[in-house]
C-alpha cells in the first residue's frame, strides 16, 4: 500500500537578502571633529607641560632674585661700611691728611682801600690769608 506523504512545508524564512552596502567613508565634518578632538587632546597636554615649565622657570627666577637680593644687600652694607667716618678717617690718616679742626688760620695785614676796593675789611684790619694744615 502506498502511502502518501504530505508535501514538506518548509518554514518560510523571515530573512531577506538586502543589497550589500558600500563601506561608508568619514564625512568631512566628522573628520574635522576628530582632528579637533585630537588637537585639543595634545593641546591640553602641551598646555600642562608649558605651565609646568613656566612654573619651574618662575621658581628658578625667584631663586635668582633672592640671590641677587642677597648680593644687593651685601653690596649695600659694604657701601655703607665704606662710607663710615671711622674708615674714612683711618684711611685719610694713612695719607697724612688732617681734620679741619687741626688746621691753623693765618692772617695778614690788610692794605687801605677805597670804597670800591672790594676788600673784606676796613683800614687797620687783618684779613684771612689761608687756612693751612698743621700736624
Amino acid at each position: 500500500m502506498a502511502t502518501r506523504t504530505a508535501p514538506l512545508r518548509l518554514p518560510r524564512s523571515r530573512l531577506r537578502v538586502i543589497p550589500g552596502r558600500q563601506p561608508s567613508s568619514l564625512s568631512v565634518r566628522q573628520f574635522g571633529w576628530l582632528v579637533l578632538a585630537v588637537a585639543m587632546f595634545f593641546a591640553l597636554i602641551y598646555s600642562r607641560i608649558y605651565l609646568d615649565r613656566a612654573a619651574f622657570q618662575i621658581a628658578t627666577l625667584e631663586g635668582q632674585i633672592a640671590e641677587q637680593q642677597t648680593r644687593y644687600d651685601q653690596l649695600r652694607l659694604e657701601v655703607a661700611q665704606l662710607e663710615s667716618p671711622q674708615r674714612i678717617y683711618a684711611e685719610a690718616e694713612k695719607m697724612n691728611m688732617v681734620l679741619p679742626g687741626e688746621a691753623r688760620t693765618v692772617y695778614a695785614p690788610m692794605p687801605d682801600t677805597d670804597d670800591d676796593g672790594g676788600q673784606l675789611a676796613t683800614s687797620g684790619s687783618t684779613v684771612l690769608l689761608a687756612t693751612v694744615g698743621a700736624k
Binding site: P100, G101, A103, T105, Y107, L120, A121, S125, T126, V127, L128, T131
Partner: peptide
C-alpha cells in the same frame, strides 16, 4: 669748618 663758616675777619 665742616659747615663752611669762614673764619672771622679781625
Amino acid at each position: 669748618h665742616q659747615m663752611g663758616v669762614p673764619p672771622d675777619v679781625r
